[in-house]
C-alpha cells in the first residue's frame, strides 16, 4: 500500500474490479436505522452510584485495620522473630503473608486515590478531541476517542444514551462531523442541564447572601452552595461522584478560579461594597447578593469547563469572562451552536 506524500491518503487510481458470485447478490437499502433523539430528559442521575469509597477499597482497608490490630496485639515483629528462631519456615510464612496483604491493600488504596472518571481522564479526552479538531484534513480515526468515551460512560446513567448516539453515526461521517454530532445529540442536552444547575445555585446563593446579616456567613453560604453545585455539574457530565473525584474537581476548579483572580476579585468586590459610605444597608446587601450570584455562576462555568469531556472550542470549553457569567444568569446558553461555513474549510 502506497501513501501519498502530500496528504497521507492511500494512493489509488480508478479501476473496475471483478465481482465474485457471492458479491453479485443485490444489496438493498436498509429498512431501519437506529434513530436518535437529542433530548435526554429521561436521564436519571439519581441512580448514579454516589458511594464515597469503592467497595474494594472499603474491604481492603477494613481487612488491613483488623490485621494491624491483631498484629499489634501479638507484637508482630517480636512474634516473627521468635517464630523464626524456632523454625525459619514458620517465621518466613508469616512474613510473606503480611507482606502480600499489605501489597494488596496499598494497591487498592492507590486505585481509590487515582480514581476512575476523574478530571485527569476528562482532560485526556478533551486533549484527544482537540487534536482531532485541529487536523487540516478529514480523518476517520475517532475510534480511539470514542472507545475511551465508551469506557468513561460505562456503568453510568449516561451509558444507554451514549450508545444510542454513537451506534447511530452514519458510516460516511468524518471525525470532525462525528464529534459535532456527538456534541449536538449527547453533550448539548447535558449543557442545558448544567446551565439550569448553575442558574439555580447562583440565584439561591445570591438570595441567601443578600438576606444574610453576618458577613462571615456569606462566605460559608457561597462555599456550601458552590460545593453542591460542583458535585451536580460533575455528575451531569459523567464524572463519578467518589470522594476522591469530588476533592479533585474542587481543587481543579479552585485552582483555575484562583488563577483567574476570581476569588480575590469577588472578595474585594464584597468588601468594597460594604465600605461604600453612602450606600444603604439594603442596597449593599442586594449588591453583595448580586456579586455572590455572579461569582457562583463563574465557579459553575469553570467547573463545567473542567468536567465536560469534549470542548467545543480549541482551548476552553466555555467563555470565562465576567459577561459570560452574567449572561448565563440572564438565560443565555453557555455553548452556542457552531456555524460551519464549508467555503472557509
Amino acid at each position: 500500500m502506497q501513501i501519498d506524500a502530500n496528504d497521507g491518503r492511500t494512493l489509488r487510481s480508478f479501476q473496475m474490479l471483478e465481482v465474485s458470485e457471492e458479491e453479485k447478490k443485490e444489496f438493498v437499502q436498509p429498512d431501519s436505522i437506529e434513530s436518535v433523539s437529542s433530548t435526554q430528559d429521561t436521564l436519571d442521575l439519581s441512580t448514579f452510584n454516589s458511594e464515597l469509597i469503592s467497595k474494594k477499597a472499603k474491604y481492603a482497608l477494613g481487612s488491613l485495620a483488623i490485621v494491624l490490630a491483631i498484629l499489634f496485639l501479638v507484637d508482630l515483629v517480636l512474634s516473627i522473630y521468635e517464630l523464626w528462631q524456632i523454625h525459619w519456615l514458620i517465621g518466613g510464612s508469616l512474613l510473606v503473608g503480611v507482606t502480600a496483604l499489605s501489597f494488596f491493600t496499598l494497591s487498592a488504596v492507590r486505585e481509590w486515590l487515582t480514581g476512575k472518571n476523574g478530571v485527569e481522564l476528562v482532560y485526556e479526552l478533551q486533549e484527544k478531541a482537540r487534536v482531532i479538531r485541529e487536523r487540516d484534513k478529514a480523518s476517520f480515526e475517532t475510534a480511539e476517542l470514542f472507545e475511551a468515551l465508551r469506557a468513561y460512560y460505562t456503568g453510568t446513567p449516561h451509558e444507554s444514551a451514549f450508545e444510542e448516539v454513537v451506534d447511530g453515526f452514519p458510516d460516511y461521517l468524518n471525525d470532525k462531523r462525528r464529534i459535532e454530532q456527538f456534541e449536538a445529540h449527547f453533550l448539548e442536552p447535558l449543557d442545558r442541564r448544567v446551565e439550569a444547575i448553575i442558574r439555580r445555585h447562583s440565584y439561591q446563593t445570591g438570595l441567601s447572601v443578600a438576606a444574610s446579616p453576618l458577613p462571615f456567613l456569606d462566605v460559608l453560604l457561597t462555599v456550601w452552595r458552590s460545593a453542591i453545585m460542583i458535585n451536580e455539574i460533575a455528575k451531569t457530565y459523567g464524572v463519578k461522584p467518589t470522594l476522591a473525584n469530588r476533592v479533585r474537581v474542587l481543587v481543579k476548579v479552585g485552582r483555575t478560579a484562583a488563577l483567574a483572580g476570581l476569588s480575590q476579585g469577588a472578595i474585594d468586590k464584597l468588601i468594597d461594597l460594604n465600605q461604600i459610605p453612602f450606600a444603604g444597608r439594603a442596597l449593599a446587601s442586594t449588591l453583595q447578593g448580586l456579586g455572590a450570584g455572579v461569582a457562583t455562576a463563574r465557579i459553575g462555568i469553570y467547573c463545567a469547563s473542567t468536567t465536560r469531556p469534549i470542548c467545543s472550542e480549541d482551548d476552553k470549553c466555555f467563555g470565562s469572562k465576567l459577561t459570560d457569567s452574567i449572561g448565563i444568569l440572564l438565560g443565555k446558553k453557555i455553548i452556542k451552536a457552531k456555524e460551519d461555513d464549508g467555503l472557509s474549510a
Binding site: 500500500m1 487510481s13 479501476q15 474490479l17 453479485k24
Partner: peptide
C-alpha cells in the same frame, strides 16, 4: 466494502444495466 485482496475499501453499486459492479474510485 473491503477489497478482497488488498487492505483498502472499494465501492459496490448497481451499474447502468442493473447488475452489481465493484470499482476502486480514484482520489
Amino acid at each position: 466494502v473491503a477489497d478482497v485482496d488488498r487492505p483498502i475499501n472499494v465501492l459496490k453499486a448497481h451499474g447502468d444495466d442493473g447488475s452489481v459492479i465493484k470499482y476502486e474510485p480514484p482520489q
